[in-house]
């Protein structure tokens, strides 16, 4: 059992939790993730490590379906059944002088520790962050504290520019020829289009892939992704990869294979 020591609501869909887990905290680095089970007999779900302080591990999750909703019903003082990590390979911090991070939705959470690492390595760090509307933007203060420039986009124009992150990215790349590297974390469709744009502008591009996972130790193969015609297991080879040759369409298909069953689980929780 792992104790929830703090819980914060970031917006109506997204919470932050601080969980006591010394074995996860000890060796964790940006890019690593955990797998947790909210309760016995529960599903194993992967979540990125958003921050570490001593024995405490931060996770930021979007209440999307059954397991994340169930997690959201827990409060500080409660426990979760299982919490294992740090899993995956730590993010590869490139030798770039000017990077731009692109965050979509809850993807802002895994992006924050990576941008921090770039800042600490002395790079100029810009951020483009997108959400449906103003109330869905998260971690703005944390990003502002480390970024040289923060550009906001919302679908409805309630904050920042109205439109998609790719529109803002295009302008930003046009205006800043010095940008060497792009990191995109968010919905697969967003990562796909950011990758295409980065390639157009001849910038290197890293993405963080989120296929369905079970064990997180390379045992089941559920998390396999195709990159340049080769198969990789996201849980041990990733989850961060060079985006240029990722088969994003396959990933989207694989993510949706269990959509009907997930929906059935979710309905049971609601009733």
């Amino acid at each position: 059992m792992y104790k929830i020591v703090e819980k914060k609501t970031l917006n109506k869909e997204i919470d932050l939790m601080r969980i006591e887990a010394p074995l996860v905290a000890r060796n964790a680095q940006p890019g690593h993730f955990v797998i947790l089970r909210v309760e016995a007999e529960g599903e194993r779900i992967p979540l990125t490590i958003a921050g570490i302080e001593g024995n405490l591990v931060d996770i930021i999750y979007q209440k999307l379906g059954y397991s994340t909703k169930l997690l959201g019903e827990k409060e500080a003082g409660d426990t979760v059944e299982d919490f294992v990590g740090p899993l995956g390979k730590a993010a590869h911090i490139r030798d770039s002088k000017h990077v731009v991070g692109v965050a979509g939705g809850v993807g802002a959470a895994p992006l924050l520790p990576q941008l921090k690492a770039y800042k600490e390595a002395g790079a100029r760090v810009d951020l483009i962050i997108g959400a449906r509307s103003e109330s869905f933007l998260i971690l703005l203060d944390e990003f502002k504290a480390i970024c040289d420039e923060v550009i906001i986009t919302t679908d409805d124009g309630s904050a920042g520019l109205k439109g998609l992150v790719t529109d803002a990215l295009k302008h930003h790349l046009e205006d800043n020829a010095g940008i060497e590297h792009v990191i995109a974390i968010g919905p697969v469709i967003m990562m796909k289009y950011v990758t295409l744009m980065a390639k157009d502008y001849k910038k290197s591009i890293d993405v963080s892939l989120n296929p369905i996972m079970i064990d997180g130790t390379g045992m089941c193969g559920n998390c396999r992704v195709s990159i340049g015609g080769k198969t990789f297991f996201a849980c041990i080879d990733g989850p961060d990869f060079d985006g240029s040759d990722v088969d994003f369409d396959e990933l989207m298909q694989r993510q949706s294979y269990y959509k009907d069953e997930e929906h059935a689980c979710y309905l049971r929780l609601k009733t």
């Binding site: 529960g42 079970i214 045992m219 089941c220 193969g221 992704v225 195709s226 396959e250 694989r254 069953e261």
Partner: peptide, 29 residues
Amino acid sequence: NLNGVYYANEFLTRVNLMKSRAIPTSKTP
């Protein structure tokens, strides 16, 4: 990597460790 292609480990893990044979109540179907 098509949908519907399993490695035996995934298939057996879903059924044994994650108890998905308890359809429709399992969280890992």
